[in-house]
Design a protein around this nucleic acid. Structure first.
Lengths: 148, 148
DNA sequence: TCTTTACTCTACTAAATAGATAGACTTAAT
DNA sequence: ATTAAGTCTATCTATTTAGTAGAGTAAAGA
């Protein structure tokens, strides 16, 4: 599961993407419209700004706005920013590699090999999941392809 | 990331799968061979037993052994057992559905639609990742298909 | 320049979860 | 009866998650 922080970030980003031509939008509006505790949202938006995804304007007529195009903001980046690596094992992360403490031989580890493949395919899916894609799908859901 | 508990469970299962014709194996041996704290492992093996994946024999010449065939034990089941749902959002879980608290309209939610697809594909991958597959891959790693 | 508006920064807190550890108890084989 | 091994209950500490409080700073406009 992703954290609430990440989910709130996605909600806020979708909100901003849908109004990207309306100039800066204040935190209070996003918080109210998306049902997010305002103080919590403040910290989240600040992080998104530091990451170069959003920009802000202070004072009167201020607020936050998208810096990147909606097709250039993907779920992999947002999830990494708040929840850390997408990989399921520390030994298959891209940026935060760490050996599994109990591991005997990483080079021949079959578990690692299987989870490396899972990571690669997951990252690839999440990179295709952009704000644009999310907005395009709103209200016109596809039928699920796999069921289990 | 999966929890250490889940990772230890996988390590123990692989150990038991590789010696599946040698009769019951004692906890102490698995703990030592796989570098897992013994007391922690005891609880894990008990859970795997309750889940019908392992069986145990008490007393002298006792220990744990695989109840299912290695090709019938997959990572999706093990992860669900210890870490809960595989889905990244509560509203797209299969067994543990829960509405996202802040959600305005689940039926038309583009975020949900995107994460439902991610869940379906992830579960499908993890179901193919069986103990047999892990053991087959040991020492003969494939080259990664995607890099990012 | 004063006031208002809105973002920014630092600190704190409560509850839940992760990752264990300790010790007594039960069961089965010899 | 003894010994080997799994089982059960309780407890513990550190970290993370989710959220709150309040003071500080910057920009617009009257």
């Amino acid at each position: 599961m992703i954290s609430k922080k990440t989910k709130y970030a996605i909600n806020a980003l979708v909100h901003l993407a849908k109004r990207k031509d309306e100039g800066p939008i204040i935190i209070a509006e996003i918080a109210k419209a998306e049902n997010i505790p305002q103080k919590f949202l403040e910290a989240i938006l600040l992080d998104l700004k530091k990451a170069g995804i959003l920009a802000s304007k202070k004072g009167k007529a201020g607020g936050y706005y998208l810096l990147k195009a909606p097709e250039d903001v993907n779920m992999a980046d947002v999830m990494r920013l708040f929840d850390g690596p997408i990989a399921l094992l520390p030994c298959v992360t891209y940026m935060y590699y760490e050996r599994c403490e109990e591991c005997k031989d990483e080079e021949t580890c079959g578990i690692r090999d299987v989870f490396l493949e899972v990571r690669n395919k997951t990252v690839s899916m999440l990179k295709k999941s952009t704000l644009l894609e999310i907005i395009r799908r709103e209200g016109k859901q596809k039928r699920p392809e796999n069921e289990d």
